[in-house]
Design a protein around this nucleic acid. Structure first.
Lengths: 337, 337
DNA sequence: TTGAAAGCGCTAACAC
DNA sequence: GTGTTAGCGCTTTCAA
């Protein structure tokens, strides 16, 4: 039971060798004799020698670590993404340093400095809702650290990126609502400065237009939290020309709608259909079960990590920036006809 | 736009000083003249000098990084815990390396090696469901790396720990069911080799006994996943002496029960009360709203991290191991009377 | 086939 | 008040 990690020097001393010989032995360098290699390997194993990642890192200025900047961990989608990144990183023995911006711009800046200082090999980032300038991301690139955006990308900076197909996902969902007989479809959206919100909005509008339905701004409030939903849903239900379907930008709001609609005496989906976005655990807990758009968070995570690692391995050196689009999938449950 | 992180040496050369003077200036050492300090600080700021964490780490064999071993990130409770850890760690400029065991023993072993090799300052861990031997955790301690268990602790190893008050949480919940008139209360539990399951089970049994109700093994199946729930809930509902309440070990199973019970034509809570455990997002999405036990995951995270950091700061050097218990809170919604 | 020495960026003990 | 030097653990010339 040793009290300290054993080092190359310890092995060298114990075996009357030099540290360089030990080093070479352990990485199976051809110059070293079979015999020496075996002695070293044996001793190392017995004493549970583990290379000091810090020392390794100092030489190369790289430490087999990847930084992740994520808005909020406590979120079905983001935690799924994280899980995917973990899995993919592990395959190549990368560790993950995870930083939460908490949707706060200043915090985002702070964590970029942390990651830079930690000398991570690369960074995966999803920008916070409150971020509007992007110098801190540019700084990562200026330090020649590969950067891949996922989900919430930053259009002003030219990097690899992985996005969910928000447009098509929403288009298909709204189209499904229309195909099943809905004509007045409300869209509960998120603030418009995020690309993802806009893409979803466009998917919604295009689905309406394609089916010859007029787009009505009054049916498209900003409503991405339960807090906001309270008043807004109430208003929508009391409209003389009440909507016969609600598309909500996330499952939480959709679940809230379901309860509110039922409490107001309407039936789902007969009177009003409801569709969410995420396919989180929530969508199986509502009554009726929630029709929703699966974002494949895990796949977003693995894909982003793979892209980054390929860059690090130099396999994508020459080509320009690549954008990967992860397909969504409409999961039809009982909240739509 | 520099292409490389600037180092102390660069600053020293540029200002015709020695690296040590620069080093001291930047940490406001009293020996250095005001003037020199200002010159150094100015140059450093202008060139965005950031200390190289790797080099720092190599000297002390510590890298201001804490390893977290967590069963599954995609879980309301665990992601809350993670979030709390993040927040607390950031206060003291620690970074987090997060490893997922995926409830797999072998993976758990692998990640401990990773953390050891990364030379983290400390480790926070929650053991996987499939783990039954604990040598790998002992090895962390043998390397004199402080270890704090959270939630799923390992009783065989003597360390600091933070647990949720599963016993009292369950006791109070079951007591609430009894107080509101329930007499035959089913307990859908988890496999018994986890301490937390046992504590919850004991809380359940004691609440029954205290109220003079007999404990019936037939009402206490192992049922911690929706998969298992299918058959089990069906059986319970068809018992001649049908339960009038169900306590489920997690919100997912509780939500499933709610749907199944309603589908079978029973009313909630009039015919059957349902109580969950976690107070995850799900509990607001069910209909009726789910009464559940809040585990305060965020607080578990901050507390565990605080405990660890205090150890690292040597503030808790002498004392034996401390156990912190995070109180639960019964959140009464509409699924109980 | 092996060893000696330098160097990655930083700090601290010891000069001056 | 500032500089010199050694050393953290490892790899990699270069020399033997």
């Amino acid at each position: 039971m040793e009290k300290r990690q054993i080092t190359l020097k310890d092995i060298a001393r114990a075996l009357s060798l030099s540290t360089s010989t030990v080093s070479r032995s352990l990485k199976d360098h051809p110059d070293i004799s079979r015999e020496t290699k075996d002695r070293v390997r044996k001793f190392a194993d017995e004493h549970r020698y583990k290379p000091n990642a810090l020392a390794l890192g100092l030489r190369t200025n790289k430490n087999k670590t990847i930084g992740v900047i994520i808005p909020e961990i406590v979120h079905y989608f983001f935690s799924s993404v994280l899980s995917g990144m973990q899995e993919e990183a592990e395959k190549e023995d990368y560790s993950l340093i995870i930083c939460q911006s908490n949707e706060d711009y200043n915090r985002e800046i702070k964590v970029t400095r942390t990651l830079l200082s930690a000398h991570v090999c690369g960074v995966l980032a999803s920008v916070s809702k409150t971020t509007t300038t992007f110098d801190h991301y540019q700084e990562i690139l200026d330090n020649e650290i590969p950067l891949v955006f996922f989900d919430r990308i930053c259009t002003g900076i030219n990097t690899d990126r992985v996005v969910v197909d928000d447009y098509t996902g929403t288009f298909n969902a709204v189209n499904h609502l229309i195909q099943t007989g809905c004509k007045r479809i409300a869209f509960l959206g998120a603030p418009t400065h995020l690309t993802i919100s806009n893409n979803r909005r466009m998917g919604y509008e295009d689905a309406l237009r394609k089916n010859g339905i007029q787009v009505e701004p009054s049916l498209m409030p900003i409503c991405d939290t339960i807090l906001l939903a309270g008043e807004i849903v109430h208003r929508l239900l009391n409209l003389t020309d009440r909507p016969d379907a609600i598309f909500a930008i996330n499952d939480e709001v959709a679940a809230y709608c379901i309860r509110k609609i039922k409490a107001s005496g309407f039936r789902i989906p007969e009177d009003i259909s409801v569709c969410g976005f995420s396919n989180s655990y929530i969508s199986e807990a509502t009554d009726p079960g929630l029709t929703t758009v699966d974002q494949h968070g895990f796949e977003v995570g693995t894909t982003a990590m793979r892209l980054l690692i390929d860059r690090l391995n130099g396999e994508e050196k020459k080509e320009g920036c690549v954008s990967k689009i992860i397909k969504t999938r409409l999961v039809v449950r009982e909240s739509t006809k």
